[in-house]
Simulated scan of single mutants.
Amino acid sequence: MIIYVTGGARSGKSRFAQERARQLSDSPVYVATARIWDDDFGQRVQRHRNERGPEWTTHESELDLHQLPLADRVVVIDCVTLWLTNLFMANQNDIDQTLAAFKADLDKLREIPATFLIISNEIGMGLHADTELGRKFTDLQGWANQYVASVADEAIFMVSGLPMRLK
């Protein structure tokens, strides 16, 4: 089962997904896809770790999420944007290769008997990217989000901390 949660920055996506996971399981799993690039981001990651209680199992994985021990668990994947960034870098910024790799990874996850709450960002609703690379990534993110939404059992769009059920 896939529950897709999307929205803008600080829209309440992670809080919603984590609360939903706790409703579904006493011992959920949190998969962090972030690569820590600087001290500020490292502090953000640590703050998120501290906010989750000891009932959470945390895995930090930039790629190949399907190789983690996730079977029969309730799993929050946070987030598609950073996972996609890792794939984009691994594929030398090639949109087609990255999107194919993302879809293949997600399809492998779908084979695992688990409940996934997959968080993503709606970056295409913000300002137009200044650089060609930024515009390419915005397109890639949009197509990846469309794919996740198409295979999801539920889709939720977060706005100002409120869930809007799309599917």
Rank of each mutant, 00 (worst) to 15 (best):
G142A: 09
T58Q: 13
L166Y: 01
C79L: 06
F137P: 07
R35P: 03
T81N: 03
W143R: 15
A155D: 03
R165Q: 13
A21M: 09
W83N: 04
M158P: 11
A155W: 02
Q67P: 01
D139F: 09
I156W: 10
A32I: 06
L117M: 05
F116W: 14
E122N: 14
L106D: 04
Y30P: 08
G126Q: 00
K13V: 11
S25C: 12
L65C: 05
L24N: 11
S160E: 11
R20V: 08
T85D: 02
G134M: 09
E132Y: 00
C79A: 06
S25E: 12
N91L: 00
A104D: 11
Q141E: 15
V5R: 01
V29A: 12
A9N: 02
I156C: 09
E62R: 15
N50F: 06
V148M: 03
A129I: 03
I95F: 10
T98P: 05
I118T: 10
L117I: 14
Y4T: 01
H48Y: 01
S150T: 04
M164L: 15
S11R: 04
D139R: 12
K136S: 15
V148K: 01
M1N: 15
N93E: 15
A144L: 04
A104S: 12
A21H: 08
H66I: 02
I2H: 03
E132S: 05
K167E: 09
S27V: 06
L84Y: 04
E19C: 05
Q18F: 01
P54Y: 14
P28I: 13
L106V: 13
Q18D: 09
K13P: 12
T33R: 08
A101N: 01
G42W: 05
N93Y: 15
Q67Y: 04
D130L: 10
L82C: 02
L65I: 13
M89S: 12
I3W: 03
C79R: 07
D72I: 01
L63I: 10
L117N: 06
D40N: 07
R52L: 10
Y30L: 10
Y4I: 00
Y4Q: 03
I3G: 04
Q141A: 15
I123W: 05
I118R: 12
